[in-house]
Write a protein that binds this DNA or RNA. Structure first.
Lengths: 342, 342
DNA sequence: TTAGTTTTTGGGATCGCTCCCGGCTATTAA
DNA sequence: TTAATAGCCGGGAGCGATCCCAAAAACTAA
């Protein structure tokens, strides 16, 4: 029933060489006569031999596998990030293990622990939880032989490479864009209120900077918790409390989508009566009616480069410490949800 | 720098027992005195010892890992499927490796080959390619010691468990729903035209059955290739060629979204002038204006049960052959894109 | 032709675990 | 008291690769 156990010894036997030589050709190592190499390669091909990865892992202490810790794979941003990470992994001939952490640090740590069983050479994680807790844990981890790259969290440990979007800049530019359109009554629906999200904080700071630069005194900030439904509710509240507002900057596209629905519900036209802008650049925001103007995060690119950074770190044990962190700029995508104020 | 190599021997030493006993408590095997078990467990905990998974894999020939082959993780249906699969995997204490196949069989096969290096105990795949090619390949694979479960393809091999949505029924019910609403001029935008998609074919057949049952002679079928933009174009074509149509059944939500945009563009109101219905139940379809009526595939459930089936097959080597295939019914979600014909 | 090099090749130890089997210790029965 | 049985535990032989080191082969130069 089962396939005859074909291992490196069998290949060696059939090719008339020793296992060492077979190992050399498998791993493309020097020191094998071309003719021998060819002969062995042929046998390997004929028998469709695949070296056992557990044995390889045991002997070499490398699994050629990367662990991905993601909050929620159904989130379009994360999915695109994973797709980018996978591309680089494939190119570098690495495998990927996936673990969902459902936005809670404890689960993230559990995922990491799972990976600590020597299953992976390194971890790429987008954290969604509190930075402090993460910080503590990662300090311990760093003393292990697991390399890690963290996305979207500003942790303190200097030995851990970080990837972040330039959230301050994004907040600034989104707001500036609305100001340049002539708006002065600009509200902001921010993400979370808790300390765990520096992304939200930085975007708020960017918003404030743009306003103050333009000499606009009134800040109108409501929390939307990065949730569509929450944004829907809070938008209604915002409009009833601040009917003077002519533009809203949402800290995410999903919130903008919720907001758009609320606005329509209240009989407001977008963008004629009110302009809205989001952040993320998810496909969905382009499909809305009207399509929503947004600052797009290069999710694919972030995944790709995050994976690249990790693999580099893995393969050149040199200059491990103090590698430059990566910061990604967002791209403004002008669509039909924003309009010059007349 | 690196952590002192802590292995099963060290635990054994510190606990004052043999490695065999440590192994027994790690794997929860019988034959260890309660007091000994406790003592060993304590040492394991104190040292935060994690058995090396490569060594485990080598010795036991089980990796406790499942390979997932998915066409595109950024597709919301697949993402939700993966989420379901992951839930079950976690519960059963399995890990998951992810590989994207970008909708082409060759890449799917490459992914499978990658997994054949003994990295995984089994494979769960949603295929997006031609059924014949897949059939051939899987026949070979079956003779290996890799278990596999295939979603969304009707392959012939009887030993491979399959999961499918009841596409015929979905096509039938979608059409019937429109008929019950009083429509008689009902068009269908189908998926692909090529032989590779039985899903599309079955839905078309369901559409035809419903029409003929209702004594409606005229079938109006256009190909939309499961692509939003294609559906946009073809919808415009359809309307100009068949202005009498009052309802369109799209073979996917994405196509319905493209169609909706086309309809609006042409000045048609949905659902007042024309009703539309889709298939899939992706979140996006609920966020459209109007929200689109659809038949929802239980993606999460499918992932969960697919993984469950695979793990069962893995763990009970018994009754391997001829396990019942799983067929999932879709759920009609009535939203605002369909309306009684007056 | 022979010694000295450089390439190729083979063998053995090892990685960290599982699992089988035999031995030891206790407990029970006669 | 002694033998039989059951419950615990330890030791050794793999699992299938890598990698170091020494041996063999091939090549060079004198």
């Amino acid at each position: 029933m089962k396939n005859k156990n074909i291992d490196i010894y069998k290949i060696a036997e059939l090719a008339g060489v020793s296992k060492s030589t077979v190992s050399r050709v498998i791993n493309d190592k020097a020191g094998v006569k071309a003719s021998t190499r060819e002969k062995v390669a042929q046998v390997i091909k004929d028998l469709n031999y695949k070296p056992n990865s557990s044995a390889k892992g045991l002997a070499s202490k490398k699994t050629h596998t990367i662990g991905l810790v993601i909050s929620d794979i159904t989130d379009p941003f994360f999915a695109m990030f994973v797709k980018g990470a996978e591309k680089k992994a494939m190119e570098a001939n690495y495998n990927m293990m996936l673990a969902n952490s459902h936005w809670v640090v404890e689960e993230e740590l559990k995922c990491i622990q799972m990976f600590e069983e020597g299953r992976v050479d390194g971890i790429l994680m987008i954290s969604g939880g509190s930075e402090e807790k993460l910080d503590n844990y990662l300090d311990n981890l760093a003393s292990n032989n697991l390399d890690i790259v963290v996305v979207d969290r500003k942790i303190k440990n200097e030995n851990i490479p970080k990837l972040n979007s330039d959230n301050f800049d994004a907040g600034y530019r989104a707001t500036k864009y609305l100001i340049d359109l002539g708006h002065t009554k600009i509200a902001h629906i921010k993400g979370e209120d808790i300390a765990s999200s520096h992304a939200s904080r930085d975007r708020v700071a960017g918003y404030e900077k743009a306003l103050s630069e333009a000499g606009i005194k009134e800040k109108i900030i409501y929390p939307g918790f990065f949730a569509r439904k929450k944004a829907y509710q809070v938008t209604k509240k915002l409009i009833t409390e601040h009917s003077e507002v002519t533009a809203i900057f949402y800290s995410s596209d999903m919130m903008a989508i919720g907001g758009l629905k609320a606005l329509k519900n209240m009989g407001l036209r977008v963008p004629e009566d009110i302009s809205i802008i989001g952040i993320d650049g998810i496909e969905m925001s382009a499909l809305m009616d009207p399509p929503i103007t947004t600052l797009s995060q290069p999710a694919f690119e972030m995944g790709y480069q995050g994976m690249e950074k990790l693999i580099n770190k893995l393969e050149n044990e040199i200059n491990n410490s103090h590698s430059e962190d990566l910061i990604f700029q967002m791209e403004l995508i002008e669509r039909a949800s924003t309009k010059k104020l007349n």
